[in-house]
Each structure stands twice: as C-alpha cells, then as structure tokens.
Nucleic acid binder design. Structure first.
Length: 766
DNA sequence: TATTTTGGTCTTTTT
DNA sequence: GACCAAAATA
C-alpha cells in the first residue's frame, strides 16, 4: 500500500516535544474528511484537549475513531506509536486497525491499539518485575482462576457448600474492577463473604498467583495501576509517549479502567472518549455509567459532541428503538434521527409474532430465513440475537435440520474444549515451569499412574521448600518418598519435560506441539478411546497444531489464546449468525431476529431480582441495542410455553413488546393461539394473555396444534389423563374446566383468567 | 488407582 | 437433561 503521508519515520524512542507540537507544514485536509457530516468532522478535528463524543447507535462512532486516528497521523500531530487507542473487545480492535490501515497504510501498525487488557499485558511484559511478575507470566482463564481459588479456600477450611468459590470469585473480581488491591479492601461490599474472611482469602489468592507467576484478567489492569503508582518515572514515560488517547465504548469502562486512563492522560489531557449511555450493558461486570456521566466534571473544559444522525436503520426501526428507550429515566438524552433526510420510505414494519412454544419459534424464524435466502439475501446479513446463551441451542438444531449454514459467536469456544485445554497446558508448562495449574492438569493426562496421592505429596514438598511443582517433582524422585512405580513415571515425565523445554529454542511452536502431543501419549490416548467424540477431539487437536504453525513464538501464541478466547479463523463463508445481544453490540445486519421476548427471559428474571429498577433499565438498553443492530428488518417473537430444564412453563410476553410504538409494528400470531387467526392486525392486545378479562370475546375456537407437532421426531407424550369436562386447578390461573384435550396439551376455560392452552403437568384435578 | 455412581447445579450477559 | 465434582466401589 502506498504511503501518501510519508509517515514511516524510524522510531526515535523519545518524543520530540511532548507539548506544543506544531507540524512544520500542515498537510492539506485529506479527502476522506469530506465524507463526514459536520458533527463527525468536528469530533475528528478537535484533537487538542478533552473531548467526549456521545454517539447514538449507528451514527458512525467507529468511523469517527478511525478517521480521528488517521487524521492525527496525516496531519503529523503524532507518530503512530504516540497514539493510544483503547477498545473494549478484540473484535472492535481488529476492525479499527483494519480500517485505519486502509486509510493511511502500514504506518498504522505501530499505533498502540487494542483492548484494555491486551495493552496492559504489553506494559506488564515490559515492566512487570516491578510488581513481581516475570515477563513470561501466565494469564489464567476463568477455569484456572476458579480452581486456584478453590485450593486457597480449602486451605482455609471454608465450606464450599456454604460459600461457593464462584461467589468469592465474583466478589474479588468486583474489587479488582474497582481498582482495589487487597490492602485497599476495607468496608467494601463483600468483605463479609465466607464469614468475614473474604479479604484474607483475597490476600492468599494473590499470593498464590504470584508464586505461580500468573495473573488473572482483573490483575492485568490492577497491576498496571500499582506499577504506575509505584514508579512515577515509568508512568511518566508512557504519559510522554501517548500524546493522543482515544477510548471506544466509554460507557462500559469500569473504575480500574477509568483510573488507568486518568493516570496515562493526566499530563497532556488529549483524551477523546466515545460512548453511548443508552448502550451501557455491562454494569454487572463492574462498568460504571458514572464514568461517562462525570466526564464533564473531570474535564470542565471538555468539548462535547453529540452524534445523532443515524445512517444505519430505516425510520421505522429508529422510531421503534427510540420509543422503547424513552421508557428509561436515567439518560443523558439523545434523539436518533435518520441521516438520510428527505427519505420518505419508512421501511418495513417490525414484525412481532407470538408462537406456541420454543421449537415453533425456531421453525418460524428459520422459515423466514429460508424465504429470505430464496430471494437472494446474503446469509451473512442475517442474525439471531438472544438474551442468554442457552437459547441458542434451539436455533442451532433447527438450522442444522434445514441445512442452513450458521455460525455461533461466543458459543462453545474452541480454546475451552477439554482436549485443547490439555494441549495448551502442556505448552504452558514448557513455556513457564512455575505454572502449577498446568502441571496439575496434565501430570496424569494421559494416565501415568500419578494420582491424587502422588500429587498431594509433590504439593506438600513444593510448599515446604517454596518451589514450583516441577522443581518439587525433580527433588522428590531423588528420594524414597514415592513408590517405585510412581517414581519411575514421574521421572519419565520430568525427563520428557526437560527435553521439550530444551527444544523450545530450536523448534517452531507448531512442530513442538505436534511432537509433544505425540510423545506424551496424548494422541494415543484419544485414538484408543472408542467413545463417539474421540474422532472429533483428534480433529480439534489437528486443527490446533496447524493453527499453531502461524506463530513463531510459543509465548506469543499463548498470550493470544488467553486474551482472545475465540478461534478467529474460518469465518468467511456465507452463514447466519447466532449470538447473544451482548456480543452483538457494535455489529450491524440487514435482518435481525429477536426471539424470546418473554417476561423472566427478557427482561431476565435474575437480573431484575438482584438489581431491580436499575437492572430493568439495563435490560431495556439491551433491547435497544438489539433493535438498532438492524438496517432493514426486525422480527420479534415470543412463545407461550417454554421448556425449562425438564419442565414446561407458560410464559407472558415481555413488557418491552408493549413499549414498541404500535404504528411501527405488525402483529401476527399463530392460528388459534391468540384468537386473531387470519391476520387482523390493528389491535395490539394479545387476548387471553395480557388481559384475561377480555379473553372470551372474539376468541376463535383454537385449531389443533398437531400440525406443527407432527414434524417432530420426538415420541409423543402419553395421552393426558384429563378429560373434557374435568374441573382442574392451575397455580397461576386458578380453577377452570377442561374444554379440549390434545395429547398433553389441554385447553381450559379458567373461571378468572379466561380460556388458555396449558400442559397437563401444570394442572391438578380440582 | 481407576471406574462407576450419585448428587448438585446449571441458564445472564465477557475481557 | 446434561455436566461436573465428589463419593463410593472395584
């Protein structure tokens, strides 16, 4: 790629002049600036001083960030490595990098661009010794964290039934999110966990991490803060280096990230934060909307720019989203309006459909996808967005049976599979012998006759001598502590490990991994395994090894794995996307399906129970995010019955459905289900559901639901023990009389709630 | 030590 | 109903 701005200067290490930098000869404004609207352009050109860009959905937020970086480079306001651009997700970082590269060329490679976590790692790899981390430290995933914490709690005799490790993990993580090291935890919420020992356990946990030369996710930020505070000289270097700082999705930053930014920017204050309070959906993870709300207080001289022109969605979709989000009270207040002025086409209405149950919902959605496919729609432009991961299964099944290609984002992740984690554990141990968690994971995988008792002994010795498990193993095989069998096996393992370690310098990671897995017998183990999933696991291992070939250092690969838990290859082909609403933020599609709009699912019950009104508003923001992902078509659906675990439960349409403007939606319900078969829209009631008192009027006699059911290959449930005319009682709806029986589905005229379809397992004879 | 059985938990969202 | 961890059994 050409480089019109001649920016590939050799790095000079030290910035020429930290402040008052004026380009010798200002370059003419690049042509791509003209493609911006006035607000966007203002946000790009306001390079000096603090800037807050309040950017509604689809208003060109990423474009502003990308252009701003490019602008700073093209105007020679800074060298590439003097720009710090922070994103929230790896995907956002990748996209931003690609787009900046496209605008200004390969110089952009040198920009410090990445997630908070990735950038923190970069800093810690360099200066970690200050806070006691060697530069090859391991980053633990949540699995390892939990395992480690369990060990710590066990030492302290905490009853895992009473105080689950997961709970303490949450407490500690929230502390870390707020930038609290163990000493700083005082009267914070959560100290009374585990009978008031939470803080002591936090201390112990951090100590264990240190001896393992490891850090968890929260530590990456936290250690940076400690480092900056302990060594003003190092902080000063970074402050000097980063002349311009840009932050994406600022509304999702937590306290630790806020402090991180503040430390790095307090010298020259050229910070530009972009965010949207209406899309703040991570408070459960410690995000503080307060950060964006207090920006003006922190920087009284801040320039504030609002982006409200939406170029993504049809006016109908915008109207629906705006109407919905207007139900929230805590807002900075922005109004989205269409960026295409004079456009008279409002676009298709949002289709809202009620169905009988989950499988029916999946069937309807996939049918719609098929018909879109027939009319030549790009499958990549279609997404099914669910509230929670478990909802995805239903759609996957249906997509598989119909043969429509799909991909699941954020689903079962490649690197979390057991065999992959095992393989990684081998590599981790080779890379970093102190990694005791990796050691424990693989010491007896494949089986070497080194069971619990042996591991316990190694542990004991290790703790007594204060050395790593590998070191302890080496010592213990020189003694008679272990039985001859175990001793020989352990000796063999140690010898192998030493040999692999020595090969690390001379062998590529890919070759090394292949060799290790072969020699340790891991491949063999799965080949001997006759279970159904064994071949798949071998495939995964093969893919794993070949994927490794792209890396030239082992540590580089391991870092990638721990920061990017997804397998980002193999994503090109035409496929429908299935993912959670959370991971959909920042993306856009022509067509979006939003299933499961039912009370307790969406808004999520647990969330509401825990955080009440605040949570409801966050759920509503999530709905807003979902709708605004769509350019042209939105489909909302809800089912009258859901299977939860093994039980059927009847459900009520989500309150968010009522919050959509009636003139923007087209309501449709399954024949017989809501009494408006034949497609009359107009009224936005769902008789018999929302307003039981009116259920009687206009309810057409339900047609049989078997038609749909017969598609299922599942065996029929045995016929109901109820008969027409029986008096029954239902927990939710009270007393009633059975009007019709269809397998296990009953149609019942309830005395108080009108006529409903329910499953026989929910009623009892009255 | 290895395998089977039981019992408990899961379904909120992720770097 | 599926998955995991701990307990019981071979």
């Amino acid at each position: 790629m050409s480089d019109p701005f001649e920016l590939i200067d050799e790095p000079d290490g030290e910035p020429v002049a930290a402040r008052g930098f004026v380009p010798a000869a200002p370059a003419p404004p690049p042509a791509w600036l003209d493609k911006l609207n006035p607000e966007q352009r203002a946000a790009v050109e306001a390079t000096e001083g603090p800037v807050l860009v309040l950017s509604g959905a689809g208003t060109g937020k990423t474009r502003v960030l990308v252009t701003r970086v490019s602008y700073i480079l093209s105007q020679r306001l800074a060298k590439p490595w003097q720009i710090l651009a922070v994103t929230f997700t790896n995907r956002a970082a990748r996209e931003m990098r690609e787009r900046v590269l496209a605008l200004v060329g390969p110089v952009a490679e040198a920009v410090w661009l990445g997630t908070f976590h990735a950038l923190s790692v970069r800093i810690l790899r360099r200066h970690g010794e200050v806070i006691g981390l060697k530069s090859n430290f391991t980053i633990l995933d949540s699995d390892d964290q939990l395992r480690l914490l369990k060990q710590v709690m066990e030492v302290d005799d905490i009853d895992p039934k009473k105080w689950p490790a997961q709970g303490l993990m949450g407490v500690i993580q929230r502390w870390k999110d707020r930038g609290l090291t163990p000493e700083k935890v005082s009267r914070e919420t959560g100290v009374d966990y585990a009978g008031g020992r939470a803080q002591a356990l936090y201390v112990a946990y951090q100590e264990r991490l240190r001896t393992l030369n490891a850090a968890d996710f929260g530590d990456l930020l936290l250690h940076c803060l400690t480092l900056f505070q302990a060594r003003p000289d190092i902080l000063g270097e970074y402050q000097n280096q980063f002349r311009y700082v840009l932050v994406d999705e600022y509304q999702d930053s937590n306290v630790a990230q806020y402090l991180w930014l503040r430390l790095l920017t307090q010298a020259n204050r050229n910070i530009c934060c972009v965010g949207d309070d209406d899309q703040s959906i991570y408070s459960w993870r410690g995000a503080e909307v307060g950060n964006i709300l207090r920006f003006e207080k922190d920087y009284p001289d801040a320039t504030i720019i609002k982006l409200e022109r939406n170029y993504r969605s049809t006016p109908t979709i915008l109207a629906a989203a705006s109407h919905l989000i207007a139900h929230n009270e805590a807002r900075l207040g922005k109004t989205l309006r269409s960026g295409h002025e004079g456009n008279t086409d409002p676009g298709a209405p949002i289709r809202v459909r009620g169905v009988w149950d989950g499988p029916e919902e999946a069937r309807w959605i996939v049918d719609e996808i098929e018909s879109l496919q027939r009319s030549k729609h790009d499958l990549n432009q279609i997404a099914i967005l669910v509230r929670a991961g478990f909802q995805m299964l239903e759609f996957e099944e249906r997509l598989i049976t119909t043969g429509i290609p799909y991909r699941v984002v954020g689903g079962p992740r490649f690197y979390e599979r057991m065999e992959i984690r095992d393989a990684i554990a081998y590599l981790r141990l080779i890379n970093q012998p102190e990694d005791g968690l990796a050691f424990e994971r693989i010491i007896n995988t494949p089986k070497r006759g080194l069971g619990d008792s042996t591991v316990q002994k190694i542990h004991q010795l290790g703790r007594a001598l204060g050395v790593s498990l590998v070191e302890a193993s080496l010592r213990i095989i020189e003694t008679d502590e272990l039985r001859p069998q175990a001793r020989a096996a352990l000796r063999g393992f140690c010898t192998d490990l030493a040999r692999w370690q020595s090969l690390r310098e001379t062998t590529s990671p890919g070759d090394l991994a292949g060799m290790v897995l072969e020699e340790c017998g891991y491949i063999d183990m799965w080949q001997k395994d006759k279970t159904a999933e064994a071949p798949g696991r071998l495939d995964n291992l093969r893919e794993f090894v070949s994927g490794l070939a792209e890396w030239d250092t082992l540590s580089g690969f391991l870092e990638h794995v721990s920061l990017v838990m997804e397998n980002d290859a193999a994503n090109a082909e035409d496929a429908v996307t299935v993912m959670t609403l959370h991971s959909a933020k920042g993306l856009e599609f022509d067509t979006v399906f939003l299933p499961g709009w039912e009370e307790d699912i969406f808004p999520n019950r647990r969330s509401l129970d825990e955080n009440g009104q605040k949570a409801l508003e966050e759920e509503r923001r999530l709905a807003y995010v979902g709708i605004t992902r769509a350019r042209a078509r939105v489909f909302v659906s809800f089912a009258a019955n859901r299977r939860v675990y093994n039980q059927w439960q009847s459900s009520i349409p989500s309150r968010f459905i009522d919050e959509l403007p009636k003139n923007a939606i087209q309501q449709e319900s399954e024949a017989g289900l809501y009494g408006n078969a034949g497609g009359g829209s107009g009224s936005f009631d769902f008789p018999g559901f929302r307003d039981p008192s009116r259920a009687g009027s206009g309810v057409r006699r339900p047609t049989k639901m078997i038609e749909a059911e017969s598609w299922e290959s599942k065996p029929r449930t045995s016929a109901s023990s109820f008969q027409v005319g029986d008096r029954v009682f239902h927990d939710k709806f009270g007393y009633g009389r059975v009007e019709a029986v269809d397998d296990s589905k009953l149609e019942i005229a309830f005395d108080k709630s009108g006529r409903k379809k329910v499953l026989d397992s929910f009623v009892q004879p009255a």
